[in-house]
């Protein structure tokens, strides 16, 4: 699964087959600080993302959404 992080535009490859909530936990991101978008549709933390997906994670808290993840 390709994950595109905005606004940094960094990309990471991660294994799919997990819920969005698990994906955010792996990236150390808080759910209320990002929009998770696939095929121009927003996903909830309960949606499942797959290996073939391209997922955009768009930070919404200006500069303050990051926990400790150096990727975003």
């Amino acid at each position: 699964m390709r994950v595109v992080l905005l606004p940094s535009r960094e990309e990471v490859e991660l294994r799919g087959g997990c819920r969005v909530g698990d994906l955010l936990r792996e990236l150390q991101l808080l759910p209320g600080t990002v929009l998770v978008i696939r095929d121009d549709e927003m996903l909830t933390t309960e949606d499942v993302v797959n290996d073939s997906d391209t997922v955009e994670i768009r930070r919404v808290i200006s500069g303050g959404a990051r926990k400790r993840n150096p990727l975003c």
């Binding site: 905005l6 606004p7 600080t33 808290i61 200006s62 500069g63 303050g64």
Partner: peptide, 23 residues
């Protein structure tokens, strides 16, 4: 979507981060 380049390191962003963790 891009942030203002001058915002990096602004104290308000630190406060937002702290509040977001509390939230």
């Amino acid at each position: 979507i891009e942030e203002c380049p001058n915002a990096a390191g602004a104290s308000q962003l630190l406060y937002k981060d702290v509040l977001q963790r509390l939230e």
